[in-house]
Design a protein around this nucleic acid. Structure first.
Lengths: 211, 211
DNA sequence: GACTGATGTAGAACGTGTTACAAGTCTAGA
DNA sequence: TCTAGACTTGTAACACGTTCTACATCAGTC
C-alpha cells in the first residue's frame, strides 16, 4: 500500500507480466487473451460493458488472475489503448505520410486516426473515458500512449518515417496539437461535438500553430 | 430514459431544483447545503471521499433526496464545479484585468485560477476527474463550465470587463487555450506535470497562438 | 379542519469493482 | 521423483453508487 516509489512496478511481489514482454509464453498468451476480451467487450457495449467478471470469463482466466495482470479496470483499459496506439506507431514507421505540407500531413494522420475511432464509438468511449479517469498509478501506461501520439505527429510533421530530431518549439506545438485532439475526442465521445467539429477544431489549431 | 431533447431538464417528472434558481426557499437551501458538503468532502479527501451517503449525511438530507437533486455523483461534482467557476466569472466582471498585453492578461487570469486550484489539490482532483468522466447526460452542466471559462479568457484578452464581441479567430484561439489549460490541469492532477510545467505549457500555447 | 399530491426520510436491496482466501497446478531444482 | 514456491482457480465477501419501498410531512384546495 505504501507504493510511493517513483516506479510503480515490482514493489511488493511476484506480479507477472505487467509489461507486454516478459513472462512465460503462457503468460504472454493470457495477457493477450485478456486484452482481446477487453477490446471485444468495449467495442460491443462501451465502458460499462467492460465488467471485470465478464472480461475474466471471456478471456478464460479467473478473476484473481485478471487482477494479478491488471490491478484495476482503468489499468486494463489504458493498457488496451496503449496496445492499439502502438500498432499505429509501427504502421507510421513503414512509409512516408502523404501530403505536401506539414499541415496536410498532420491532418492526414490525425483524421485517419479520428475516423478509425469514430467507426467504433463504443470502443472509443471506453478507452477515452478510462484514459481521462486514470490516476497517478497509471502513469506508465499513460505515458506510453502520449509517446505514441507524439511520435506519429512528429513523423507526419517532417514527412519522413525516420525519427528525426524535433526542436523545442516543434515539441511544444506537437503537445498542443495532442491536447486539442484529445479534448476534441472527449467532446465527441460525450456528444458535445460531431465528427465535423472534431476535424475543424484540429484543423484550426494546426493552422494557427504552424503559420 | 428517452431524454433525447436538447434540454435535459423537466422531461419526466417533478424533479426539483436542478437549476440553481427556482424551487422553494427550503429547496434552494437544501441545494446549497448539498453542494457545500460536496466541496467540503472533496477538499478533504478528493474524489473517493465524496461518497453519496456521506454527502447526504453532512448536508442533512436523505440519500433519496440527494439523488432527487443530483441524479448521480458526477452531476453533483460537476454542478459544484460550475458553481465555483460562476463565482469567478462574476469576479472578472467587476474590474479590468491587469496586464499590458493580451498575453499578460490571459496568463494573469489563468495563473491565478491555476494557483487557486493548486492550493486545494484534493478538491481539484475531485472536480477535474468528475468533469472528465462526465457523459452525455451532464451536457448542461459541462456547457456552463465551458462558457464561464471562455468568458473569463475573452475578457482578459480584450482587457475590459465588458463583454465585447469576439471574432471567429479569437473564439478559436480561446477554445484552444481552454483545451491546453484543461489538459495541463489533468496532467497536474494525475501527477504527470508539476506547477511549473502547467504554467509553462499554457504560456507557450498563448505565445504561439497570439503571435 | 380534512383530503391530495408532491416532497422528504429511513433503510433495505442490488450491481459491479475490488479484495481475501483456500485449494489445485505448474515449474525449477535437489 | 520429490519438494518448495510461484501461479492459477473458484468463490465468498466487502464497499460504494444507485434504485426501490414504505411511511412521514408539508402546501394548497375544498
Amino acid at each position: 500500500m505504501t507504493s510511493v516509489s517513483t516506479e510503480p512496478r515490482d514493489t511488493d511481489g511476484p506480479t507477472p507480466a505487467t509489461a507486454p514482454t516478459g513472462g512465460s509464453a503462457a503468460q504472454r498468451e493470457r495477457r493477450r487473451r485478456i486484452l482481446d476480451a477487453t477490446i471485444t467487450l468495449a467495442a460491443e457495449g462501451g465502458f460499462d460493458a467492460v465488467q471485470m467478471r465478464a472480461v475474466a470469463e471471456q478471456a478464460e482466466v479467473a478473476l484473481g488472475t485478471l487482477y494479478r495482470y491488471f490491478p484495476s479496470k482503468i489499468h486494463l483499459l489504458v493498457s488496451a489503448l496503449a496496445r492499439e496506439f502502438t500498432k499505429d506507431v509501427d504502421r507510421s514507421a513503414i512509409r512516408a505520410t502523404p501530403g505536401d505540407t506539414a499541415h496536410e500531413r498532420i491532418m492526414y494522420v490525425l483524421n485517419r486516426r479520428t475516423r478509425a475511432l469514430q467507426k467504433q464509438p463504443k470502443l472509443t468511449e471506453a478507452l477515452v473515458r478510462a484514459f481521462m479517469f486514470a490516476d497517478q498509478s497509471v502513469t506508465g501506461e499513460i505515458h506510453e500512449v502520449g509517446t505514441s501520439l507524439t511520435t506519429v505527429i512528429a513523423r507526419a510533421m517532417h514527412g519522413t518515417p525516420t525519427h528525426g530530431e524535433v526542436t523545442e518549439e516543434e515539441a511544444a506545438i506537437i503537445r498542443i496539437i495532442s491536447d486539442v485532439w484529445l479534448s476534441a475526442l472527449i467532446s465527441w465521445v460525450t456528444g458535445r461535438m460531431d465528427e465535423k467539429d472534431v476535424e475543424k477544431s484540429i484543423d484550426v489549431a494546426v493552422r494557427l500553430l504552424l503559420r
